[in-house]
Design a protein around this nucleic acid. Structure first.
Length: 645
RNA sequence: GCGCCUGUAGCUCAGUGGAUAGAGCGACGGACUCCGGAUCCGUAGGUCGCAGGUUCGACUCCUGUCAGGCGCGCCA
């Protein structure tokens, strides 16, 4: 109802802008606390009262006069000390909304947007912490695309970092495995490395002298020297495939996979370093603790310096990130080469390479960038943005958005369920941080497997007549919907303390509840078709007629109907608001509330058994309207809608 | 020490300065020969951490304070 509100605001604005000291922004339309008080509400009389020293109620009455001729508004009431409550013309509004269901009222604002998410180190299996990142990131992508933006999804692969080095170390030094041996490891390679990684971490902390060997491996990998670099390549690619498969189970995919190895080989950092030195963004530290390093000073905090280039001349992680960020905006003056990494249903996932070749695609050059990274990296993300700023790219720095969110932790109960013992001094903690290093976490695929088998058991119970294949397919959709809703339902600043009972629940505020609602609404139309040959065309005929028999409803039903329609009509505002605040819990809650309302509605007002044709028509239209919106919302959240469940 | 975040029902969490602070879970009690009970309806449960301030109006903004978390590496 964005346009509907705009229309009323514009109408009033034209009438009062000359006579009252008021700005367009003051004319916000809010919702009264209860639908019986009105559909929309102006509160600006209170502000105005202060400015022109008049009673707000009197102002409200004066202004309400001016809205009288607007045909969208059926009634105006002045309430309390000066609220202007509007009642909309219900028939007109509902018909208009039904007819414009397929036309989005949102408009794009950017030339191109890059969303970077997932970014799992390719040295172990994905865990629930990574799921939160990917689910938030993908929902942002879907919402931006709905808004009409051109979006490019990047998943950064740190294939030469210390985490991969640890696993290379494990294979070479601890397991003494050759590359051929690695290729022979059967089954879930990411799971194998999950265990190996924790063994390496334990080994390294017990044998500090082994750090030298590790540093040597890192150096060789960074310079592409065999065989270490080949190990790293093999491991990172095989695990990357596992990660992509995991994310595919959740309906999440990517456009391009920029690799750190490519950034190194193509000397992106050297280019960025040159720029930073020229513009004076980096300072060479002559003495003090950072002697011999190139450092950056954080704005407003001259005390603290962040080392970008170490005294041995190597670049830190932040430095590489600045180069990558510059590339995303097309400011680096260089590009990667690309080759297809995977292909599915005609969609190619490209990966970067440093080997020159003809490329049919190119990436980057965005006007806005979202980096989906947990809150612990806030400081570093600030430095990355600062890097752009000192180069004079103020605008790009402002459009480098750190989409931060709190981490995922484990409840004490979940920890116990995973078979971990809590050490004495940590007994008091109410949560435990997920740690790949310690092997402490719930693997994404394990969680999905558990959800699928639980869902399958439920489907068996409810729909025994379906084929095994159908049942499995439904169970997969339920598992996916369950996780995706779960990862979205908490505000991003809220620490997500993972609990198995909660995550495996299919009742109440859960993904399956939303799916179930959709399935049942669909089944109303299916039944109607089976019994009476009802066709979708019948619906559009009603929508295109000039008349809706709203008066056939009694007072109680009419208010239920109207409350539902008004609520449902706010979906695009909610999408927009979720994008602006990066708070997709709003979107999730909105979908959930909508489901509660429609469930309650059709429980109260039967359709198939209703004899009164007018009532039947209105109820059907209402259900069709809500269902159409619910389908949009589910798609945005990546929650599949099964045929049955 | 400095910076950021969080304190709301027994538990997990919502709550663009606006009217009577809401959900889910858990507990208790109910539901139509019905379009699917993964549903619906009801009951109980709150000094919105504490104290000031701004405002016609504060869970929301400001200040202080207490409690918890996370950052502040020549790690990534």
């Amino acid at each position: 109802m964005i346009l509907a509100k705009e229309k009323i605001r514009n109408y009033l604005w034209e009438k009062i802008k000359e006579t009252y000291p008021i700005s367009w922004n003051d004319l916000q339309l809010t919702f009264p606390p209860d639908i019986s008080m009105g559909d929309l509400c102006f509160t600006f009389p209170f502000k105005l009262a202060r400015l022109i020293k008049k009673n707000p109620r009197q102002i409200a009455e004066e202004i309400a006069e001016k809205l009288k001729d607007l045909e969208d508004v059926a009634k105006i009431e002045i309430a309390g000390p000066g609220y202007i409550n509007l009642f909309l013309n219900q028939e007109r509004f509902f018909l208009e909304r039904l007819r414009s269901l397929d036309q989005s009222q949102l408009r794009p604002e950017e030339r191109k947007i890059i969303v970077e998410h997932t970014n799992i180190n390719p040295n172990k299996a994905a865990h629930i912490g990574h799921l939160r990142n990917a689910c938030l990131g993908d929902t942002l992508v879907q919402c931006l695309r709905y808004k009409g933006e051109k979006v490019e999804v990047q998943n950064y692969i740190d294939d030469t970092g210390v985490q991969v080095v640890d696993v290379v170390f494990g294979f070479m030094e601890l397991e003494k495995k050759s590359l051929e041996d690695l290729e022979k490891i059967p089954g879930r390679f990411d799971y194998y490395c999950w265990d190996l990684y924790t063994r390496v971490s334990a080994f390294l902390s017990a044998h500090p002298e082994a750090q030298a060997k590790k540093a040597e491996i890192l150096r060789k990998i960074e310079h592409g020297e065999p065989p270490e670099a080949q190990y790293a390549y093999y491991i990172s690619r095989r695990i990357l495939k596992a990660h992509l498969a995991t994310m595919k189970r959740l309906g999440i995919t990517y456009d391009v996979l920029p690799c750190e190895s490519s950034i190194l080989a193509l000397k992106f950092w050297e280019k960025a370093f040159q720029l930073l030195k020229e513009k004076g963004g980096l300072i060479y530290s002559e003495d003090g603790p950072n002697k011999g390093c190139w450092v950056m000073r954080l704005e407003g905090d001259q005390e603290r310096e962040k080392v970008i280039v170490r005294s041995d001349g190597t670049v830190t992680y932040v430095g590489k990130d600045i180069a990558y960020q510059l590339w995303k905006f097309g400011l680096l003056g260089g590009d990667f080469y690309y080759e297809p990494f995977q292909q599915e249903n005609g969609h190619i996932i490209w990966i970067t390479t440093s080997e020159p070749r003809e490329c049919p695609v190119s990436f980057g050059r965005a006007s806005k960038v979202y980096n989906v990274i947990d809150v612990r990296q806030s400081y570093l993300q600030k430095i990355v943005a600062q890097g752009l700023k000192v180069l004079g790219y103020e605008e790009q720095a402002d459009k480098s958005i750190h989409f931060s969110y709190e981490m995922v932790a484990l409840s004490p109960k979940s920890l116990k369920e995973l078979g971990f013992e809590v050490i004495e001094e940590e007994k008091e903690r109410s949560f435990y941080e997920v740690s790949g290093r310690k092997g402490l976490g719930v693997k994404a695929d394990d969680l999905l497997d558990r959800l699928e088998s639980k869902a399958l058991a439920e489907v068996e119970k409810r729909n025994p007549e379906l084929s095994q294949e159908e049942k499995i397919n439904i169970a997969r959709q339920i598992a996916c919907g369950s996780i995706r809703y779960f990862m979205l339902r908490f505000a991003r600043n809220s620490l997500l303390i993972f609990d198995f009972d909660e995550a495996l629940n299919f009742e109440g505020e859960t993904g399956p509840y939303l799916q179930y609602t959709g399935v049942r609404l669909n089944s109303i139309f299916r039944k109607l078709q089976e019994r009476e040959g009802f066709q979708p065309a019948d619906l559009s005929a009603w929508i295109n007629s000039e008349f809706l028999p709203l008066d056939g409803m009694d007072e109680k039903e009419r208010s239920h109907f109207w409350e539902l329609v008004i609520y449902a009509s706010q979906y695009e505002e909610t999408i927009l608001e979720s994008i602006y605040t990066l708070e997709f819990a709003h979107l999730a809650k909105f979908a959930f509330n909508l489901c509660q309302k429609i469930n309650s509605y059709y429980h109260l007002y039967p359709i198939l058994n209703e004899k009164n044709q007018d009532l039947r028509k209105i109820r059907l239209l209402t259900v069709a309207y809500v269902l159409a919106i619910l389908k949009k919302l589910l798609a945005l959240m990546g929650i599949p809608l099964p045929e049955r469940m």
